[in-house]
């Protein structure tokens, strides 16, 4: 995909992943980059921005191997934001899907 406007979608992905459980940065980056082609470094500015907007809090947890992990935890504000974003995404993707189906069936 070479769309300019994919960045907003990353935000939903992060929010959805954190809704299930707290994750650390590396984990989030890996889970998303498995499925969507991103330059991994840009996830960190995104995480910082969403933290500053009050959607996440962070805490450190020692791990048996390697450095302490910085975990991101979704806040109540983040949950509300996620619900809004998902609603918008559903409406948007339904509209696009409808266009595709109509286009394909009329051929």
């Amino acid at each position: 995909m070479n769309v300019q406007f994919k960045k907003g979608i990353l935000e939903i992905c992060v929010l959805v992943l954190l809704d299930k459980k707290d994750c650390y940065g590396y984990e989030l980056v890996q889970r998303i980059s498995e499925k969507i082609e991103i330059s991994e470094g840009s996830m960190y500015p995104l995480l910082r921005r969403l933290t500053k907007d009050g959607y996440f809090t962070t805490y450190y947890q020692e791990s048996s191997e390697g450095p302490a992990r910085k975990y991101y935890k979704l806040t109540e504000k983040g949950r509300i934001h996620l619900r809004e974003q998902m609603q918008e995404w559903k409406e948007f993707s339904n509209a696009v899907n409808q266009f595709i189906e109509e286009g394909v069936s009329s051929e």
Binding site: M1, N2, V3, Q4, F5, K6, K7, G8, L10, E11, E37, I38, S39, S42, M43, P45, L46, R49
Partner: peptide
């Protein structure tokens, strides 16, 4: 703009 446009994607 910061939220939506550019950045984050490969082949920018």
């Amino acid at each position: 703009n910061v939220k939506l446009v550019k950045g984050g994607m490969k082949h920018d």
